[in-house]
Deep mutational scan, measured.
Amino acid sequence: MDVFMKGLSKAKEGVVAAAEKTKQGVAEAAGKTKEGVLYVGSKTKEGVVHGVATVAEKTKEQVTNVGGAVVTGVTAVAQKTVEGAGSIAAATGFVKKDQLGKNEEGAPQEGILEDMPVDPDNEAYEMPSEEGYQDYEPEA
Score class of each variant (00 low, 15 high):
43 K>T: 04
92 T>N: 08
96 K>D: 07
75 T>G: 07
78 A>S: 05
57 E>V: 07
78 A>L: 13
16 V>F: 10
61 E>H: 04
45 K>N: 01
110 E>F: 12
64 T>L: 10
44 T>E: 00
49 V>M: 15
138 P>A: 09
73 G>M: 14
36 G>N: 15
45 K>H: 02
80 K>S: 09
127 M>I: 12
58 K>P: 01
8 L>F: 01
38 L>C: 08
52 V>Y: 15
7 G>V: 13
49 V>H: 12
122 N>I: 11
92 T>F: 15
14 G>R: 12
66 V>G: 02
105 E>S: 11
136 Y>I: 10
25 G>N: 04
80 K>A: 14
74 V>Q: 01
83 E>C: 04
40 V>S: 00
45 K>T: 13
107 A>D: 06
94 F>V: 03
21 K>A: 12
113 L>I: 09
17 A>T: 11
57 E>T: 07
132 G>M: 13
60 K>L: 09
140 A>H: 05
71 V>T: 05
14 G>H: 14
137 E>T: 06
132 G>T: 13
117 P>A: 06
97 K>N: 07
84 G>I: 14
42 S>V: 07
78 A>G: 04
77 V>E: 02
71 V>D: 01
131 E>F: 14
94 F>R: 01
135 D>W: 07
128 P>F: 09
79 Q>L: 11
48 V>W: 15
2 D>E: 01
77 V>K: 02
20 E>R: 02
62 Q>I: 07
127 M>C: 10
37 V>S: 01
131 E>C: 09
117 P>I: 04
44 T>A: 07
65 N>A: 09
32 K>S: 03
112 I>Q: 07
90 A>Q: 11
40 V>P: 00
73 G>P: 02
89 A>F: 11
46 E>H: 05
79 Q>M: 11
72 T>R: 11
116 M>G: 03
61 E>P: 02
114 E>K: 09
140 A>W: 14
61 E>T: 03
11 A>R: 00
40 V>T: 01
122 N>E: 13
99 Q>C: 09
11 A>N: 00
75 T>K: 13
6 K>D: 03
135 D>P: 04
134 Q>E: 05
31 G>M: 15
136 Y>W: 13
75 T>M: 06
139 E>F: 14
88 I>R: 04
78 A>F: 14
140 A>F: 14
136 Y>L: 10
120 P>I: 09
19 A>N: 00
119 D>A: 12
2 D>R: 01
30 A>V: 13
64 T>K: 05
61 E>A: 07
5 M>Y: 01
114 E>P: 06
89 A>H: 04
33 T>V: 15
94 F>S: 09
28 E>A: 06
122 N>V: 08
51 G>H: 09
31 G>Q: 15
22 T>M: 08
17 A>D: 02
140 A>D: 14
60 K>C: 10
57 E>Y: 06
81 T>W: 05
86 G>T: 07
103 N>W: 13
98 D>M: 06
82 V>Y: 10
27 A>P: 00
93 G>Q: 03
38 L>P: 00
37 V>Y: 15
65 N>I: 14
2 D>H: 06
112 I>D: 05
117 P>V: 12
125 Y>W: 09
103 N>S: 07
119 D>V: 05
129 S>V: 07
82 V>G: 02
45 K>W: 15
63 V>N: 01
42 S>C: 08
12 K>S: 04
83 E>V: 14
88 I>S: 03
112 I>E: 05
68 G>I: 15
135 D>E: 09
38 L>Q: 07
90 A>H: 12
60 K>V: 11
8 L>I: 05
58 K>R: 13
89 A>G: 07
37 V>M: 08
100 L>R: 08
44 T>V: 10
24 Q>V: 06
95 V>R: 11
109 Q>S: 12
14 G>W: 05
91 A>F: 13
80 K>W: 14
7 G>Q: 13
129 S>A: 04
11 A>W: 15
121 D>C: 08
61 E>F: 06
2 D>G: 01
107 A>Q: 05
79 Q>W: 04
4 F>C: 02
132 G>R: 14
140 A>R: 12
65 N>T: 08
93 G>C: 04
138 P>N: 04
51 G>V: 13
71 V>C: 04
66 V>A: 07
39 Y>A: 02
74 V>F: 09
68 G>T: 13
68 G>K: 12
56 A>G: 03
110 E>C: 06
36 G>W: 10
21 K>G: 00
16 V>N: 05
89 A>Q: 06
140 A>S: 09
104 E>C: 02
65 N>W: 11
107 A>S: 09
69 A>T: 06
128 P>D: 11
110 E>R: 11
88 I>C: 05
109 Q>M: 04
39 Y>S: 05
86 G>K: 10
115 D>R: 05
40 V>G: 01
105 E>W: 01
99 Q>N: 08
69 A>V: 15
97 K>F: 14
8 L>M: 06
89 A>R: 07
33 T>H: 01
28 E>P: 01
97 K>E: 03
123 E>D: 10
89 A>I: 13
108 P>Y: 12
15 V>N: 00
28 E>D: 07
110 E>L: 12
130 E>F: 10
41 G>K: 02
133 Y>C: 09
76 A>E: 05
139 E>W: 06
45 K>L: 10
35 E>K: 08
74 V>P: 01
79 Q>S: 07
114 E>C: 14
72 T>E: 14
58 K>L: 12
131 E>W: 03
48 V>F: 06
106 G>H: 11
96 K>A: 11
7 G>K: 08
13 E>R: 07
19 A>F: 15
55 V>E: 00
127 M>A: 03
48 V>Y: 12
23 K>W: 14
138 P>I: 04
31 G>C: 01
8 L>C: 01
65 N>M: 07
75 T>P: 01
124 A>S: 11
122 N>C: 04
58 K>Q: 06
110 E>Q: 06
26 V>I: 12
24 Q>T: 12
91 A>I: 05
38 L>D: 01
20 E>P: 00
87 S>V: 13
25 G>Q: 15
44 T>Y: 10
101 G>Y: 12
80 K>I: 09
127 M>N: 09
131 E>R: 06
88 I>T: 03
86 G>L: 13
34 K>P: 00
127 M>Y: 11
70 V>S: 02
71 V>M: 14
90 A>L: 13
84 G>N: 10
94 F>D: 03
113 L>Q: 13
45 K>C: 09
131 E>P: 13
38 L>I: 03
106 G>S: 15
89 A>Y: 12
66 V>Q: 01
137 E>S: 13
122 N>M: 10
33 T>M: 15
57 E>A: 08
123 E>M: 06
97 K>G: 11
108 P>G: 04
34 K>R: 05
29 A>M: 12
55 V>D: 00
77 V>G: 04
130 E>T: 07
11 A>T: 03
38 L>K: 08
61 E>L: 07
72 T>D: 09
77 V>P: 02
32 K>A: 12
132 G>W: 14
81 T>M: 12
9 S>L: 08
55 V>I: 07
70 V>P: 01
135 D>V: 10
68 G>E: 11
51 G>Y: 08
113 L>F: 12
127 M>L: 12
140 A>Y: 08
71 V>Y: 05
85 A>P: 03
130 E>V: 15
53 A>S: 11
118 V>F: 10
77 V>A: 07
136 Y>D: 02
136 Y>T: 04
118 V>D: 10
41 G>Y: 12
4 F>L: 08
100 L>I: 05
48 V>A: 04
123 E>W: 09
93 G>K: 05
128 P>T: 05
31 G>W: 14
9 S>W: 15
110 E>Y: 10
22 T>Q: 00
46 E>K: 07
104 E>A: 12
123 E>C: 15
59 T>A: 11
95 V>S: 09
75 T>R: 06
54 T>R: 15
96 K>G: 10
101 G>H: 06
95 V>P: 07
73 G>R: 07
80 K>G: 04
102 K>P: 14
45 K>V: 15
26 V>E: 00
77 V>Y: 06
48 V>D: 00
9 S>C: 09
96 K>E: 11
105 E>T: 13
120 P>F: 07
81 T>F: 13
9 S>Q: 10
15 V>Q: 00
65 N>F: 09
5 M>S: 02
